[in-house]
Design a protein around this nucleic acid. Sequence first.
DNA 1: TGCCGTGTTTGATCCACGTCAACCCCGGGT
DNA 2: ACCCGGGGTTGACGTGGATCAAACACGGCA
Lengths: 247, 247
Amino acid sequence: MSTDAATARLTFEVVKTACSNCNLRELCLPIGLPPADLRRLDELVSTRRRLKRGDHLYRAGQEFESIYAVRSGFFKTDVLIEDGRDQVTGFQMTGELLGLDGISSEVHTCNAIALEDSEVCAIPFSHLESLSRQIHTLQHHFHKVMSREIVRDHGVMMLLGTMRAEERLAAFLLNLSQRFKARGYSPAEFNLRMSRDEIGSYLGLKLETVSRAFSRFQEDGLLAVHQRKVRILNTAGLRKLMSHQRG
Amino acid sequence: MSTDAATARLTFEVVKTACSNCNLRELCLPIGLPPADLRRLDELVSTRRRLKRGDHLYRAGQEFESIYAVRSGFFKTDVLIEDGRDQVTGFQMTGELLGLDGISSEVHTCNAIALEDSEVCAIPFSHLESLSRQIHTLQHHFHKVMSREIVRDHGVMMLLGTMRAEERLAAFLLNLSQRFKARGYSPAEFNLRMSRDEIGSYLGLKLETVSRAFSRFQEDGLLAVHQRKVRILNTAGLRKLMSHQRG
DNA sequence: TGCCGTGTTTGATCCACGTCAACCCCGGGT
DNA sequence: ACCCGGGGTTGACGTGGATCAAACACGGCA
């Protein structure tokens, strides 16, 4: 869609938003700040931006200037190479940050795409840096967030490097479940926001293989699937599946 | 080896080392600092530590307190899970940082092992944080380094998720080549510090597959291999191999 | 209400890589 | 000089997941 940029501009809202009374602050950056610091943080988040399903939040190659906190909705990030291959590098939900990859070269290195209508807070990175020079705990928390991203990526490398198809899907579902739970939603029943193809890309599998794994889980009574609606029936069973030796 | 800890203590040197005249500063943290700041940085790197081939720099589960800059030598990092599977998450050479994964939970999440006799600078993380609150460019550079790690991990995810065996090995060799070049060594001829098994673990392949891919490259005149000695004969050929469509 | 397009499921077949096993190479110790 | 052991190579064979192909479910729209 070539109208992305235009759309983006239109949905840019120049309203002040307030971290200090945002109910996400346990998940997002301003964790555990004293009220005084929290008020200073409010200056940081200058704009909110609303996206429709399918919109790009940013694209690979675009200049990097802000990171984004997901206020509501669901995103994927992916990288593509010339020959057409692409790899989904992550799915981001409420309270998670997007754009950390852009810091290194001042250019975004992946695409961030809304998988449902979403809203994000834009955090100008230079402001974040200057504020975190003043607020100790903010600095430390930000470092932890970046580090957590590295640890998460190592987990995915483990998954892609050593697990077989059904283990990968089990790990993926358990991870989603736990993240929904942390946000106060049911850990057992949720709607997938992404297609089989996108799950496959993330897990290094073809969409048919993902589909078959879902069917197998259903046969085995581990879960009930209907299209994108998933109900986990046997968490322990999924977990056990993951820790089975190869072979 | 249960004597690791004892060895580590013995090889701990309580000598002041100086970033200001370290020839790695283009690769390491203190890039582009004015002389005055550089001198303050010297206080940061309190200790150097020498490791023998096979020694652990740190282990998963150990308390995190410092990151490490490789002064000389070669490392691997890996994560293992209970059932015995393990995944090499990276290889680190001169000027690269180790331990960034530990920031998130204040505990190291992987093992760092010297693949040859090596020397590292220990950088107490809390010192780094306080100094980077004072030195703007240090802060920014550190953020870039963390972000670069995330981008690197995305590259590995791409490799593990979408590439076939020979593409993976080609990508791996080209990456090594380029890093040796950046350090002033020959990009065409180098010694691998890691075993076929370790390469395989990093690339999500079995050691036999790695070995076969090496043999194939040799047959095709792309490189000359003898054990761990590699000479790249046709860089363009390797690069072309990587960009071939699957199928 | 029926049609169309997109996403999903399922089946049949193929192939890249894993597995198992034998052998080789080379360096270190006696 | 010999043996020994760990890493590396090579071959034969098996298999998990990719590929190709067909049918199906569902939401949107005329």
